[in-house]
Structure formats: structure tokens, C-alpha cells
Design a protein around this nucleic acid. Structure first.
Length: 454
RNA sequence: GGCCACGUGGCCGAACGGUUAGGCGCGGGUCUGCAAAACCCUUUAAUCCGGUUCGACUCCGGACGUGGCCUCCA
């Protein structure tokens, strides 16, 4: 069975043909670690984790090299470092922030059921590689030095704009920002810039400074995957300028016309119908979402929408997903653990077809309805949705600190005695009392159960 | 202004040129002292206007609407 993927380079779905089937190479743009991860960060993490799993399944677990970088040099980081730790040495202040955010990010990825990438390189550990690329670009007349900056000359790269389907004229027409004096062409971008004393800096042939955006990905992808690799992934908003610039500088450096065979982009994410932004005050932090909803819910909710579709992230859809998971979980006792069911072919077919997770999930609903629980659970397992850990949290949820379980049990027995005596007035009083305490009763065939009301 | 994506039933969300996706919710029922839970049944669609076609939600064109990107946001 072949994997088909929508390639942003060609704007169509294509059969995935690796450069080297014995070594699949995927690079995904990771986070800039300047602030706590939000729900929008989670989408590529989950989507490309699924692709990682698909590739591992097809080519072998040890045959897929998945690199996801950590960008720990960035002016946003500097800004926050100065704000938060004004008295600290700038490098120490930055380290405090980047280390903390990186830890939260990785911890969150685990909660979302994501496998660790093969390699998670940090930008600041690859400054030398960046300088080498920049130096070579200057020597080959692809970049120039101006007012202490090193600037990439986009007119030296004829294919500029291909990925994002933009012409230079179009880009200029929409320019919102005043052109820096040190640029020959408004679309030229910075490879290296000089640093002030309160900015992080490294020695370079062009003086003490720091790298611009984009170059870190060119340096790290080349180092860990080579000049040309199979898949480059990230959010659609990165197509321009980030990926476009990466292609321009990498191809100019490598003197070829291809950085990756396939560019895969996940769609954008809105919050309750609106773009998430700090100014709108609707940034949903992952750590907050994960307090109300288990990682499995967040993951399944994300995968209910096809990865290229825009997704409207709402509380309501999370609740619906939770309902589905709770329903599926109810089958757990009926699973035949002796017999390990294979993931059904049609689920693979759905996923291999440009990661059609909604179709796969439709099949999973069918398995539940047909009581083919082993198929359902095998599929969930493949999607990285861990119901087992979800179940553990449910049990934990029931241990309510303020409420004494024994006291509840006493009340239940009291009520059942009343019911046996057909004293329904009293039994309903007890039930109402428990309801107010946040406890809902369920009279089952084999006794009375209770659960916490949310 | 340019480029792009999307517009499906109360809500979420798919596939497909012709055969009811699925889920959630609503409603009805079974069960229960009554509830809850569980189970069963049920309902509704394709923004608008043209075109292609024997036949279009599905292909093409247009209008309208929503959203994204257009230099540092995944």
C-alpha cells in the first residue's frame, strides 16, 4: 500500500516515493521557545507525529529520521528575557526562558500522545553551521553585507515565490512594512544581524551578531538530513516567508533546485471562530486545556478534522470528543486481550490517503457499533490515542478531596433502605442532597453506582 | 490590492458524478418507584446563479460570504 500526500510544491496529492526507502528523512519546524505553547502549536505536533507513525509503519521503526528543531534564538525571546529578568545577564536570562519553555513543550507533546522525534536540535548549538552557509552565500554572490547585516539577495534565486505561489510584484504590492535602508530589494531578508550589548551575540566574520530567522532550519536540516530530504513540514502560515526563504537560501547554498521532495502543511486553527492572537486575548494555552481535557481528547479532537482543513477549536467540540471517548471506553471490559487484533486494512487505507483521519474515525465508529472492539482499540492505538491512561485519570477524578467516599456510601445505603421500604420521598431527598454535593447516582442492576458531576 | 483555502442537516464533520457516511444534540421508546446510565428507533443537507452531463453536493464558470498569507505567528 502506498502513502499519498498533498504536496504544497505541486499543489496536488502525490504518491510518496522516498529518496532512499531504507532511510526516510522528515524535517518539521518546531517551536520558537519564547512563550508557553498554545493549542495552535499542538496541531503540527500531532499531525506530524501521525505522519511519523505512518512512515514508521510502512518503512520500519528504525528507518525514519524525524528531526524537529527548537528555535532558541529570536528577538521575541530577547524581549521577554529583558522584561522578565532585567538584572540577569542576557544569556542567562534567555537560558531561563528557553529551557523552561522547551521543557513544557516536550512534556505537553508527551501528554498529547506524541512519540519523541529522532532528533530535536537547538538553533544556538548550530551557529557555526549557519555562519558557514552565510559565508558561502556571500562568496557566491547570493548574499551581501550592508550596514553590518548580511542580506540574502532574492533576485539571485530565480525560483523565489514558487512554493507560496507568489510573484515578487504581488509581494511588493502587499508590503506593510517600511523597507529597511540596508536592503537592496524590499523582499531581501536578513541572514545575520549585529547585536547590541543587551542582545545575545556570537563572533562572526561580520562582527558580533546573531542569525536572522530561517537560516537555523537550513543549517539543521542539512546537518541531520542532508542537502535534499523527503518531507519538510510545518503550519501553512510558515509557507511564506519561512519555507520560501529556506528553499532560496538552501538551494543557493547547495547549488541545486530542491530542498525537500514534499512540503506538507497543516491548516490553521481558530478559537471559537476567531483567529487566535494575543491582542484578541483568546490565546488558549495547552497547559490550561490539558487541565480540563485529557491529552487523548485533545488529540482525537484535532484528528477529527483533516489536517489541511482549517479547524475551529471550540469547547463544544472538545466536549463532543470527550463523549465519544467515554463511549468507546465503556467497551473496554469487552476487549479480548488474549487476541491482539491487527489494525484493519481500511483504516490504513484511509490514513495512507493523505492522512484522512476523519475517514479512519468513521470506520472506528462502525467497529464500535458492530462491537468489533479489538479493531477499534487497535486503530486507536495506531492513532496514538491512549485510552488506558485516560481511564486512569477517570478513576483519579473520582477521588474528590472535599467529599468523603464512606459518607456517600452510607447515604446510598440509607437511600436503598428507604427504597426497599418504598419511602420514595426520603430516597429522593437523599439523592437530591447528593446531587447538590456534586454526586450523581445510577441505580444499576447490581447496585447503586455514583459519579461526580462535572 | 495580490495569492490561497473554505462555504454540507440544530451542531461537528467526511466520501462520492447516480446507491441514507459517521458522531454529538433533539425527539420518541425500552428499562427504572422516579431519575440517571445503558440500549433501541427516528428526523433533517449541500450559500446563490449559470454551464457540462442521461444524471451534480460532487466537474467548470460567476456572484456572495468566511477565513488565512502578503518579513520573523504553528
Amino acid at each position: 500500500m502506498d502513502i499519498f500526500l498533498y504536496n504544497s510544491l505541486t499543489k496536488q496529492k502525490e504518491k510518496f516515493t522516498p529518496i532512499e526507502p531504507s532511510s526516510i528523512k522528515m524535517y518539521v519546524c518546531g517551536p520558537t521557545v519564547y512563550d508557553e505553547p498554545h493549542i495552535g502549536n499542538a496541531r503540527p505536533v500531532i499531525v506530524f507525529d501521525l505522519l511519523f507513525r505512518l512512515l514508521r509503519h510502512k518503512y520500519g521503526n528504525d528507518k525514519v529520521n524525524y528531526v524537529r528543531n527548537i528555535t532558541d534564538v529570536d528577538d521575541k525571546i530577547n524581549k521577554i528575557a529583558l522584561q522578565k529578568y532585567p538584572d540577569l545577564d542576557i544569556n542567562k536570562a534567555i537560558g531561563q526562558i528557553t529551557n523552561k519553555i522547551e521543557t513544557i513543550y516536550k512534556d505537553t507533546a508527551i501528554k498529547l500522545g506524541c512519540l519523541a522525534p529522532s532528533k530535536e536540535p537547538r538553533a544556538t548549538e548550530h551557529i557555526t553551521e549557519m555562519i558557514n552557509i552565510i559565508d558561502s552565500l556571500i562568496k557566491n554572490n547570493k548574499a551581501y553585507v550592508s550596514e553590518g547585516h548580511v542580506i540574502f539577495d532574492i533576485n539571485s534565486y530565480s525560483n523565489y515565490g514558487h512554493l507560496s505561489n507568489k510573484s515578487k510584484e504581488d509581494l511588493l504590492a502587499g508590503a506593510r512594512i517600511e523597507v529597511a535602508t540596508y536592503k537592496r530589494d524590499p523582499l531581501d531578508f536578513v541572514l545575520w544581524k549585529p547585536s547590541a550589548l543587551n542582545e545575545p551575540s556570537w563572533d562572526s566574520p561580520w562582527g558580533r551578531g546573531r542569525p536572522g530567522w530561517h537560516i537555523e532550519c537550513s543549517a539543521m536540516s542539512a546537518k541531520y538530513l542532508g542537502k535534499v530530504f523527503d518531507i519538510h513540514g510545518g503550519g501553512i502560515d510558515l509557507a511564506f516567508p519561512h519555507h520560501e526563504n529556506e528553499i532560496a537560501q538552501s538551494c543557493s547554498f547547495n547549488n541545486n533546485d530542491k530542498l525537500a521532495s514534499y512540503f506538507i502543511h497543516n491548516g490553521s486553527l481558530n478559537i471559537e471562530g476567531k483567529k487566535m492572537s494575543k491582542s484578541a486575548g483568546n490565546v488558549t494555552l495547552l497547559t490550561e486545556t490539558l487541565q480540563s481535557f485529557h491529552g487523548s481528547i485533545v488529540r482525537l479532537n484535532m484528528l477529527r478534522t483533516h489536517y489541511r482543513q482549517p479547524i475551529d477549536w471550540t469547547e463544544r467540540s472538545l466536549e463532543q470528543t470527550e463523549n465519544v471517548i467515554r463511549k468507546w471506553l465503556s467497551a473496554e471490559k469487552d476487549i479480548n486481550t488474549e487476541f491482539n487484533e491487527e489494525v484493519p486494512t481500511e483504516v490504513y487505507e484511509s490514513l495512507f490517503d493523505d492522512m484522512n483521519t476523519p475517514m479512519a474515525i468513521t470506520h472506528m465508529h462502525e467497529y464500535f457499533n458492530k462491537q468489533e472492539y479489538n479493531k477499534l482499540y487497535a486503530s486507536l492505538d495506531f492513532l496514538g490515542i491512549d485510552l488506558k491512561s485516560f481511564n486512569d485519570t477517570l478513576k483519579k477524578d473520582k477521588k474528590i478531596p472535599q467529599i468523603n467516599e464512606e459518607a456517600i456510601q452510607v447515604l446510598i445505603e440509607e437511600r436503598n433502605l428507604a427504597r426497599a421500604n418504598k419511602d420514595y420521598k426520603k430516597s429522593d431527598e437523599i439523592r437530591n442532597k447528593l446531587e447538590i454535593m456534586g454526586i450523581r447516582l445510577k441505580d444499576m442492576a447490581n447496585g447503586t453506582a455514583w459519579e461526580q458531576i462535572e
